[in-house]
Design a protein around this nucleic acid. Structure first.
Lengths: 148, 148
DNA sequence: TATATTGTAACTATATCAGTTACAGTTAGC
DNA sequence: GCTAACTGTAACTGATATAGTTACAATATA
């Protein structure tokens, strides 16, 4: 479920770098995905108050927050995304007679919830500006090692 | 990729509770999955030195560590499992002319690696005995609220 | 009114994961 | 040594989740 998160982050970084209103088509071209997917993601960001949108000619998306103020956790919340999924459950309902079999699904759910919280805690300490700084460093690194 | 982790944890807890050698069939019955899957998981635990195995009549699996000494991170390592997957990448190779498009995949990979490390850090602070304690509590809770 | 764009839904293709079956190799008991 | 029970592993099947695609109503601008 974190592909949507990638799209959202990429779109927000690109919007910030360009500093103007961009359509889903322009965003999709840069992200290398399709416009419908971008619109689906951006609609959620709008509902969370992270971007403004405008339909019609010359419409598109515009960020509402400076990157240094946008914590990545807010993006995850906007998309209602989990980073650690409960996924597969060792079955055997609550009343199957065995304490292990009946309780394990609940315990594992709790553990995965815990891990997901750890991820969000980490994301709450990172802003979009932090990622942009990493991008700059990566680009500088590639440039610096061009001739080697 | 964390279904395998569930199987492994469940199997190890059940082995500990039963305190004897159990076959893949007995384990699969309690976990509610199939024996081949259990064997695939247990073979990795064996390679990591977490269980001993014996083929042939009266064979099966036996734990090698007391639950209080077995940190959950070791199980994850044994299975070579990730909790946060890199999943989908916004494409556009390294040399596509745009700093954002070319660098974003690497930055997101780094971020997901970071989140996965956070999960492992958390797991390194939990032992199998901690999960067993949670199971006990859950079972006691169900018993206590039976009549309500 | 014509055009460009968002918001959203339906459908398709694909990749991943769990289940199933099968079988070679190994161990214990007769 | 033969048979039975078990591990280790591989190949195949079916289900589910995810991304891509197409379409269209609603909206805004000129």
């Amino acid at each position: 479920m974190n592909g949507l998160f990638c799209v959202a982050v990429h779109a927000l970084v690109y919007l910030d770098k360009r500093g103007c209103m961009l359509s889903s088509e322009e965003l999709a071209a840069n992200i290398c995905t399709n416009p419908a997917r971008v619109r689906k993601v951006m609609a959620k960001l709008k509902k969370a108050g992270l971007v403004s949108t405008k339909a019609g000619t010359e419409g598109g998306y515009h960020p509402l927050l400076p990157p240094g103020d946008l914590r990545l956790e807010r993006i995850a919340d906007a998309l209602e995304v989990r980073f650690v999924e409960p996924a597969w459950h060792s079955g055997g309902g609550v009343d199957c007679g065995c304490m292990v079999a009946s309780g394990m699904a609940g315990v594992m759910d709790g553990l995965f919830d815990d891990l997901d919280r750890q991820c969000r805690l980490r994301l709450s300490r990172l802003t979009l500006a932090d990622l942009e700084a990493q991008l700059e460093r990566a680009a500088a690194g590639r440039e610096g090692s061009d001739g080697l």
